[in-house]
Design a protein around this nucleic acid. Structure first.
Length: 113
DNA sequence: GATATGACGCAAA
DNA sequence: GTTTGCGCCATAT
């Protein structure tokens, strides 16, 4: 799987009305410290049917400048995302990606390893 | 291979 | 709260 594909797949998991951040997406996708590259993967997200508007800078700030930035805000507000000033109310909308942890089965101790 | 470019993030001032 | 500097790393040229 390619890098972009992983990133896009991760972004696609963000539910409507919830948001995430570049850094978070990068980590969850399995590529820590590649927050900047996430932006690259989303450049033509709108053309790929990816909810690019749900990815924000840390702290819930919209980093996109100009009309695209305004468009992002409109799209988000359109799906019920609330803003406090220039940033999204992360406490309310931050999406926590489900951890794909090994099951914590009842009688399973997970010996070593 | 070498450089330049960013929708980043964080620590420091 | 703001600005600055720097590390980061996939693509583009």
């Amino acid at each position: 799987m390619g890098y972009f594909e992983e990133i896009r797949k991760t972004v696609a998991r963000i539910p409507r009305g919830r948001v995430s951040t570049y850094g978070e997406v990068a980590r969850v996708a399995g590529y820590p410290r590649t927050a900047r590259q996430v932006a690259w993967a989303l450049r033509d997200g709108s053309l790929l049917g990816i909810p690019w508007q749900r990815v924000l800078g840390s702290g819930g700030r919209i980093l996109l400048r100009g009309r695209y930035g305004r468009m992002q805000r409109e799209l988000l507000e359109g799906e019920g995302v609330r803003f406090a000033g220039d940033r999204v109310e992360m406490a309310r909308h931050a999406f926590t990606f489900p951890v794909k942890a090994p099951r914590v089965g009842t009688a399973r101790i997970d010996g070593n390893r």
